[in-house]
Design a protein around this nucleic acid. Sequence first.
DNA 1: GTCTATATAATGATAGAC
DNA 2: GTCTATCATTATATAGAC
Lengths: 220, 220
Amino acid sequence: MGAVGELGFDDLTAKARLRDAAMRLFAEHGVEATSIRDIAKAVGVSGGLVRHHFGSKEALRDACDTYALTQLVRFKEQAAGGGQAAGPQFLSAGQPVLLRYFVRSMLDGSPSAREMFSQMVAQAEDWLEANHPDGIADRHAYCAVLVAMELGALMMREQLSTVLGADMLEPEGLVRLARAKVEFYSTPLLNPKAAATALAAIDQLQQSPPKRRPTRKAKR
Amino acid sequence: MGAVGELGFDDLTAKARLRDAAMRLFAEHGVEATSIRDIAKAVGVSGGLVRHHFGSKEALRDACDTYALTQLVRFKEQAAGGGQAAGPQFLSAGQPVLLRYFVRSMLDGSPSAREMFSQMVAQAEDWLEANHPDGIADRHAYCAVLVAMELGALMMREQLSTVLGADMLEPEGLVRLARAKVEFYSTPLLNPKAAATALAAIDQLQQSPPKRRPTRKAKR
DNA sequence: GTCTATATAATGATAGAC
DNA sequence: GTCTATCATTATATAGAC
């Protein structure tokens, strides 16, 4: 009795199952909103066992961060080694649980997660430099936006599932989302004219802030 | 003494200041991670006053949701009425605090926030239909991805600030981000060939799931 | 409207039995 | 390795004084 092995793997040690449950719950509800007892209950063990294996909630969190980082790096290396890194899918392809946890961790201000963000941007820049010779003015900023959007969208699973009419954790929803993302990445939202208009609007906005009109000439 | 009016508006009632502080803290750290005492301290009043004005934390949260929704709708109407709705900036232009709160609220599972997500997708579809005649196969999914990414990226303020080297709440950082977004929206990440390759990979992946080979014919 | 004091519940941490 | 029992802390909720 009791809900054991919701991830479908009952052949893991209790410690590993606790870590997995913690990652899933942390990703879903946030770290602060998840109690040690919640995690223990999800695995079907007592709260004391969490303490026994990890010492404290903070240590458990660290263990999750380390595990996620390790797995993501391993996944990246596999993809790179296997030569199938290919497209920009280097970002959120596979490992949705890991990535969702990591993004949550970012929002909660984890240092290692922040570091990972920078790495992803650098990685995107490399890919862009190799596959997209020129045509992009601010490559760094472009990639930062790309990574921020890609990761941010991961947090919108529930909303995307509702709007697209299919669970984003099920194969069906994943495929539809993947197709939509390809279309999104290959069909520019703004044509050159619209982009020029938008940039002009930004320039104008920059020169005349909302309510004040600076009288001094030098800018600082 | 005490920190009062961090938003720069001291001419608001204590109730309004509490609501604003709650929205800022909820957006920054999440609802569960923010205590009533934190909010009261931010405004410089006692925790009891929060209870007096709002009754409970849940009621305070509802008040924040309602206020954010009202303000966003008003902003939308103003933009539409003023005729300056223009570009796809209808999404996250202005009101960053409101939107950040709203996205956090979405992640925490707020019904009204979820409803707002659907509305934004519908709005994006209207804009797309008016400004982007054809060329997009699945307009609904395309817009869902657009909104999810736009809103999701809002949550990455800290990471974007670090990577771009400027605070995304300051005009300087905002301008750089705005420019990067325009470039991102106007320069496709994937060229037609890359897109075709990606779609082919998705099709293949759909036909042969990772590890299991189903022997039965009917799917349930 | 605003504060202080207190009741009640939940949480992380801890000790010890099996 | 795993559990139960308990402590100290913190949070929300509540009542009442000014």
